[in-house]
């Protein structure tokens, strides 16, 4: 029993190791990385970070990634709110089938949609803009958002809606003033998942952009192939890519448990 701590500790070390190694590498020079094995940086350097934060090619990658992710999250949640409300409150012809069909959208690999989107966006001059990626990501984020939000909304008794109508609230006013505060945690969880899926999705993001709106993931792969193995730089870029996700997780950590409890996440 005294060794009870052993298994979790080993497990956590096992999980943290790649992240530590990435951070470790990011503070080394490329020569040191290629030169031999070391557990910590011998010649500690922040040159990689300075390069990323000063070179527009690099930091624009972050900016465009963040912009399409934010646009996508806002669109997804805004569109999903009324849709989820309809699914949770009204019975209409084929509602259950439609609801399930929404989920099946997540089953198709994004690659399937890359070509039609490419062709479509080129035709309407959306190609290589953050909007192209943001809209493409709606394809799987809106169904997800509807699915999660519906769970939270169905947890609110319908009588609250009716009481508000009886009190004299119009639907929009009721929705914003009474209903949204009640499902605030649900909106938080939904936004988090939209953010995450959009942030890690690479294939559509890469194929729908060329130069102007190139996402950070694309910048990383291209740099690696053109100027040899800039491993220190790549590691630093990797660390910076993890940070936004970690930040968002930190803020919604308490709500995610609730989302899991509802069985919708």
């Amino acid at each position: 029993m005294r060794l009870r701590w052993l298994v979790p500790t080993v497990y956590i070390i096992f999980l943290m190791l790649p992240i530590y190694w990435l951070i470790n590498m990011s503070f080394k020079t490329t020569n040191e990385i290629l030169g031999g094995f070391s557990l910590y940086p011998r010649n500690f350097t922040t040159a990689s970070y300075v390069e990323i934060l000063t070179n527009p090619v690099w930091y624009n990658g972050y900016l465009s990634s963040i912009s399409y992710v934010v646009i996508n999250t806002v669109i997804s949640v805004t569109v999903a709110l009324p849709a989820a409300y309809a699914f949770s409150r009204y019975r209409f012809l084929g509602d259950k089938h439609l609801f399930f069909w929404l989920l099946t959208n997540r089953m198709a690999p994004p690659a399937v949609f890359a070509l039609p989107f490419y062709q479509l966006y080129s035709a309407i001059n959306l190609f290589d803009t953050p909007w192209a990626v943001a809209l493409a990501h709606c394809l799987f984020n809106i169904p997800l958002a509807v699915w999660i939000l519906e769970g939270f909304m169905s947890g609110v008794p319908k009588e609250i809606d009716e009481t508000a109508y009886i009190d004299g609230y119009s639907w929009p006013r009721f929705f914003v003033k009474i209903f949204m505060p009640l499902i605030a945690s649900g909106i938080g969880v939904t936004a988090f998942f939209c953010f995450m899926f959009s942030w890690v999705e690479m294939l559509l993001a890469k194929s729908l952009t060329a130069v102007a709106a190139k996402p950070i993931a694309a910048v990383m792969t291209r740099t690696a192939s053109t100027s040899g193995y800039e491993l220190g730089l790549l590691a630093a870029a990797g660390v910076l890519t993890i940070i936004p996700g970690a930040l968002v997780i930190y803020f919604v950590r308490n709500y995610i448990a609730k989302g899991f409890a509802l069985g919708r996440v």
Partner: peptide, 19 residues
């Protein structure tokens, strides 16, 4: 619509605005 009628209703369940 109910908004335009001057009615009040109290349910068996305790219905208030929790927020």
């Amino acid at each position: 619509p109910v908004q335009q009628r001057n009615v009040a209703m109290v349910y068996q369940q305790f219905i208030n605005y929790p927020a």
